[in-house]
Amino acid sequence: MSKAKEHLDKIMLELRRGTITIGVLSQLKEPQYGYSLVKVLEEKGVNVEPGTLYPLLRRLEKQGLLVSKWDTDETRPRKYYLLSPLGEEVFDLVCKEWKEMTEVMEKLISPRGDGGKTDGFD
């Protein structure tokens, strides 16, 4: 059982890597600072470690998908991130791809024809 769990973890890790990026892009139509984004994602059921999220934000900014701005008005300076026009465009494209992909995957993994019966055993 633990062997299966190990494999599951490995596969999920790979899967999550890509989805986190999409998740982050999806939440940045409004400006967010790092920790508020962690919280927002958490509320919606996506657990991202801060240690993963922060470098990711920076990387996306470097790639031009996000823009950032330091807000020094508050008691504590915070860096806010927001989708750039390019980021919005990319996000829309990714969403389309994602929907197609999930449809295809759904067809692949759900049993053919009717509700979940496997053939041959009664």
Binding site: S36, P50, P77
Partner: peptide
């Protein structure tokens, strides 16, 4: 830049 960002992250986490 990273130092400033990390610090504000850590303080946010502490506040929480």
């Amino acid at each position: 830049e990273v130092a400033a960002e990390l610090k504000s992250l850590i303080t946010d986490m502490l506040d929480e």
